[in-house]
Simulated scan of single mutants.
Amino acid sequence: MGLLDTLKQVKQEGFNAETDSIATNSKLAAGKYPVRFKSSQVSVDKASRTQLGIALEVVSGKDKGRMEFIYLSFDEGLPEFVLNKNGRTLLKLASMLDIEFTNKDLADEVATNEALSKGIGKQFEMDLTIAANKKNPDFPYRNYDFKQLISELDDSIDEDELDLPF
């Protein structure tokens, strides 16, 4: 896409240079999305906590190609409800990826990351909900649930509509 095409698209999206901010929120809105497990990695956050970073890519619909990043930490010192939520999220994600963790896989985040990498490319549905954060309103809570994608096949295909060579 060249300069002219890019500017046309920005204008079509409703951008008003006189009143709108340049920065936009690139996070996905609440909703249900068909996603692909793109990658995972181990990193250290600003508070020096080790975390698993999960990247999910939307595979269809108006948000196709957009990414959602989920960060899970299991470090001591986090509130129990956060650890429980992160644990449930990790187990549900592993279920969507057809991964059954062994004790060795859960020895640390690096081993867990290696086990998760076996699921790269698998697709499932992500249900994203967003809740207000009273302590920090600029950063609402992003809550996830996952389930298997259900393929909806159209059984109403008319054989006359098919262009078959025989």
Rank of each mutant, 00 (worst) to 15 (best):
Arg49Ser: 05
Leu91Gly: 04
Lys27Tyr: 11
Leu78Val: 07
Phe15Gln: 10
Lys85His: 08
Leu116His: 07
Arg88Cys: 00
Thr24Cys: 05
Val110Gly: 00
Asp75Phe: 05
Val35Asn: 03
Ser60Glu: 15
Thr19Asn: 15
Leu97Phe: 06
Glu114His: 11
Gln51Val: 07
Ser95Glu: 15
Val42Cys: 05
Leu91Ile: 10
Lys32Asn: 11
Ile120Pro: 02
Phe81Cys: 03
Gly65Gln: 12
Asp63Tyr: 11
Ala30Leu: 07
Asn103Trp: 04
Ser21Met: 08
Ala55Met: 12
Thr102Asp: 05
Asp108Phe: 07
Leu91Cys: 04
Asn86Cys: 06
Lys64Val: 05
Val59Ala: 05
Val58Asp: 04
Ile70Tyr: 00
Ala107Cys: 01
Met67Trp: 00
Gly53Val: 15
Lys92Pro: 01
Ser21Asp: 15
Gly87Glu: 10
Gly77Thr: 13
Leu52Lys: 11
Ser40Ile: 05
Glu68Ile: 07
Phe101Ile: 08
Leu28Thr: 07
Val58Thr: 12
Ser43Trp: 06
Gln12Arg: 15
Ile99Asn: 02
Lys118Ala: 14
Val42Gln: 01
Met67Pro: 00
Val82His: 04
Gly119Met: 07
Thr112Ile: 06
Lys46Val: 09
Glu18Val: 01
Lys118Cys: 03
Ser39Trp: 02
Ser26Asp: 10
Val58Lys: 02
Asp105Ala: 09
Ser95Thr: 12
Thr129Glu: 13
Val42Phe: 02
Leu128Val: 01
Leu93Gly: 05
Leu52Cys: 10
Gly14Met: 07
Leu93Cys: 03
Asn25Gln: 13
Glu13Pro: 03
Glu114Ile: 09
Asn103Met: 06
Arg66Thr: 12
Leu97Gln: 11
Asp98Lys: 14
Ala55Cys: 09
Asn103Val: 06
Asn25Pro: 09
Ser95Cys: 02
Lys32Met: 06
Thr24Trp: 09
Ser21Leu: 12
Phe15Leu: 10
Phe74Tyr: 12
Tyr71Gln: 10
Leu56Asn: 02
Ile99Phe: 07
Asp108Lys: 08
Gln123Leu: 03
Glu13Ile: 04
Ala94Asp: 08
Leu97Cys: 08
Lys118Arg: 15
Met96Trp: 06
Leu78Met: 13
Gly119Glu: 03
Met126Asn: 01
Ala30Gly: 13
Lys92Arg: 14
Thr102Gly: 08
Gly65Ala: 10
Gly65Tyr: 11
